[in-house]
């Protein structure tokens, strides 16, 4: 009984792992192919089944047949990083407020305000593409990093608020009350007592912000012209009527790499049980 159970368990894990890895392995082998290698069918092993070439990788860094992604890479880092940071600062403050104090305005209560934040996620980017275009045009921020950061804040702030409200609701109020007794104001309580105890929450919020920011496509696509392309836009520019599968695979691999590192960080906290309060 026990061995059967173990066999099933490892089989399931193995199956899911191959499902997860499949597209990556395929992208790795495809990135070393040329047109003949691609049309030759579903081959996996270089030299044996197809003649490998570095063309796909070279094209990423200025070689022919691809697009140079160094500029977009930096842009993506700047936009995602700044927007995430700002969102987390604003979102943590707002979440603390919503968790500790009572707000009332007419029929609006705390829960409604929280819902308002989260409901921003319901809007598909496509709905807002043109209005945002006009807004940024009015502000003179079209095709600038600042403009994109602004839009991404609207995208990421709701996530930060959602994660942090839940987190603070699980932080015992006694902590606050003890600080108040010591004569702290709410502000000093927040950053002397609460923040140091909020690292797990901040990690989760930060992770979600980075994921959703780094991976957004349609806003970056609509609101930029030539100066501030972001990574997904630069890579999708390879996916049109005639697709160079090799450069596409290479650039896809290189663009997902940084966030995969994030998976390791998240796992560390997860295994230590540190994320417990952050996601309940």
């Amino acid at each position: 009984m026990k061995t059967v159970y173990l066999a099933i368990k490892y089989l399931a894990i193995l199956l899911w792992s191959s499902f997860v890895l499949f597209p990556f392995l395929w992208a790795v082998t495809t990135s070393f192919k040329t047109a003949n290698g691609v049309t030759g069918g579903a081959t996996w092993i270089p030299w044996l089944q197809y003649e490998p070439s570095l063309q796909g990788w070279q094209s990423l860094f200025g070689g022919s047949g691809g697009t140079d992604i160094t500029g977009p890479y930096f842009n993506s880092i700047i936009v995602t990083g700044s927007a995430s940071l700002i969102s987390i600062v604003l979102g943590t403050l707002a979440a603390y407020g919503l968790s500790r104090f009572t707000f009332k305005a007419g029929f609006i209560r705390n829960a409604d305000i929280t819902f308002f934040f989260i409901s921003q996620r319901i809007m598909p980017p496509i709905v807002l593409a043109i209005p945002f275009f006009l807004l940024l045009r009015q502000l003179g921020l079209l095709d600038t990093l600042a403009g994109l950061i602004l839009v991404y804040i609207a995208l990421l702030l709701p996530i930060a608020v959602w994660v942090m409200v839940d987190f603070f609701n699980n932080v015992p109020r006694q902590l606050d009350e003890m600080a108040w007794l010591d004569g702290c104001t709410p502000m000093t309580t927040f950053y002397r007592v609460i923040l140091p105890n909020s690292v797990p929450g901040l990690i989760v919020a930060g992770m979600f912000c980075l994921i959703f920011g780094w991976n957004d496509f349609f806003f970056a696509f609509t609101l930029t012209f030539t100066d501030t392309q972001l990574l997904p836009v630069a890579i999708v520019a390879l996916n049109s009527s005639v697709t160079p599968w090799w450069s596409l695979s290479a650039s896809a691999l290189i663009s997902v790499a940084p966030l995969i590192l994030l998976a390791f960080v998240v796992e560390r906290f997860l295994s230590r049980g540190g994320l417990a309060g952050a996601v309940r």
């Binding site: 012209f225 390879l238 049109s240 005639v242």
Partner: peptide, 11 residues
């Protein structure tokens, strides 16, 4: 400033 099709065709 130039807008054009994806790489490689025309791009």
């Amino acid at each position: 400033t130039v807008i054009t099709h994806a790489i490689p065709v025309i791009g």
